[in-house]
């Protein structure tokens, strides 16, 4: 299809979004990622039955944690599509990029770390 999507999106492959854990998303933000989004199969179409539902729960939990910490919860999102929807994948990448650009860079990047 040779679709274009923003080059700032770094893809991390997992066997199923059910593999994505809270700590993976938190540490991505901690290390300076401006946003994290999980792209799972359509709800009801998970090959492992509930993997994408587990992921959605964890995404929602991370959003709560970010809010508690003092970061914008909307830096983390969940998207769903089928594996045949290449154009939708590119559209979500563009949407997320534009959304994060509006939020601005991760505020943690300017903050010095403890020793």
């Amino acid at each position: 299809m040779r679709l274009n999507y923003p080059p700032n999106v770094k893809i991390i492959l997992v066997p199923c979004t059910g593999k994505v854990d809270v700590i993976h998303m938190l540490q991505a933000i901690q290390k300076g990622a401006d946003g994290v989004y999980c792209v799972g199969c359509l709800e009801g179409s998970c090959h492992y039955n509930e993997g994408n539902l587990r992921c959605r729960e964890r995404v929602n939990h991370v959003r709560e944690l970010l809010q508690e910490i003092g970061l914008e919860s909307d830096r983390v999102r969940m998207y769903n599509l089928s594996s045949g929807e290449g154009p939708t994948f590119a559209a979500y990448a563009t949407e997320m990029t534009e959304h994060i650009r509006k939020l601005g860079p991760n505020p943690l990047k300017k903050k010095p770390k403890g020793n």
Binding site: I23, L26, Q27, Q30, I69, G70, P107, G114, N115
Partner: peptide, 22 residues
């Protein structure tokens, strides 16, 4: 696992409050 999550939260929370922690 929960220790790792709390560590990430505390590290980020303290940094955002300009009170970094080791």
């Amino acid at each position: 696992k929960e220790v790792a999550v709390l560590a990430a939260e505390l590290e980020m929370g303290r940094r955002l409050q300009d009170n970094p922690v080791e």
